[in-house]
Every structure is written in C-alpha cells, then in structure tokens.
C-alpha cells in the first residue's frame, strides 16, 4: 500500500532530545499573560518559544504546517478568551478555523497533543505556565515528531527497451476510432 516504510528513527529518541515547541500568542491577552508570568518569576520549561501575533484571528493555519514541516515537535496557539478579544471577534473566527484545522491534522495522523489551542487571558499567568508545562510534558512523552520530508527511494517499474519499447502502446488507447 505504502511507499513509505515505517520511519525507524521515530521509535528512537535521541540522547538529550528536548521538545521544540512554538507558541503563537496574541499580543493583547496571552502575550501579556506570559509577561505577567515573568513578572511573577514563575518557572516553566524553556522548550517553548513565543511568536507574537496581534490577534488569534491572525493565526494562519499555514504557519502551523510550516512549523511542523520544518521541525517543531509541537505547536501551541493562544488567544484571548472568547468574548474578550481586543478586536471583538478575532478569536471567534480563530476558534472555528482551528477546530477544523486541528481535526484535519489529526485525521492525517498527527497526535492531538502536538497541536493545541488555548485561551489564556492577560491575567492568567498561572494558566500560561501550566499550559506550557503540560504541553511540553505531553510532547516529550510523544517523542520527536518525525514527519517524512523526502520521498523514500522506491523501484520504478521497468522501462521497456529496444523492440519492446517501439511496440509499447499505452494500454488505454483502445483502437476503436470513431467514424466521422
């Protein structure tokens, strides 16, 4: 069925492997919450790198695909609580889009924990820390995300040669011409 064989590397977790997680955070709520976590000197794993976007409504699913494709082990998208969006409705659209997109990724075989969406307000420094900690732990438990990048080697069907090549006719061309 498949030209891709089980990726052997997936089973092996390299030594000193640390999960690499990117967090897309909305400027007004989650980024503020993350700053508050800093002000309160909270402690959380360093595996998460925050990328600031103005609003979760700005979150294009294509960024997630890029991150997973290029080697992140997990993606977190955070925004204001529904009803609290600085831009009124951004997170309502994001909620719909992310619900569909998450289901699509899981359908294609991504573990649900690798792509998470959370609403974290500017006051919820604790929730930000807890979310980061749980995401890191969940992704750590899953191991590295080994999405196949290159097309694996496979045998091409034999190309007809010599006399044979001359006679070879694509099989679908059925010689039953239409009379004008």
């Amino acid at each position: 069925m498949s030209v891709v064989e089980t990726n052997e590397a997936a089973a092996q977790v390299p030594e000193n492997w640390e999960p690499k997680i990117i967090a897309f955070c909305c400027h007004w709520c989650t980024y503020t919450g993350a700053d508050l976590a800093g002000l309160n000197r909270m402690n959380y794993p360093a595996n998460v790198r925050v990328l600031r976007i103005p609003c979760s409504g700005r979150m294009n699913p294509q960024y997630v695909i890029e991150a997973l494709n290029k080697g992140c082990d997990g993606v977190l998208v955070c925004g204001c609580h529904p009803g609290d969006c600085h831009y009124v409705t951004g997170n309502y659209f994001a909620r719909r889009r992310m619900m569909i997109f998450k289901r699509l990724l899981e359908y294609e075989g991504l573990e649900p924990d690798r792509f998470q969406v959370r609403w974290i307000s500017g006051a919820e420094a604790g929730k930000f820390r807890d979310t980061v900690m749980s995401v890191v732990e969940q992704v750590r438990a899953l191991g590295p995300l080994n999405l196949t990048r290159e097309i694996p080697y496979f045998e091409l069907p034999a190309v007809p040669d010599g006399e044979e090549a001359f006679d070879a006719v694509p099989e679908e061309v059925v010689p039953e011409e239409v009379s004008a």
Partner: peptide, 18 residues
C-alpha cells in the same frame, strides 16, 4: 517535490477550499 512540501500543499489546499 518532496513529502513535506507536498503535505503543505495538500493541507493548505483543503483549508482553502474546504
């Protein structure tokens, strides 16, 4: 033309027209 880029295309195509 590799699996990663094809995946990007495939997934995005579906998100765009879904």
């Amino acid at each position: 033309n590799n699996v990663a880029e094809n995946r990007f295309y495939g997934l995005t195509r579906v998100m765009h027209i879904g």
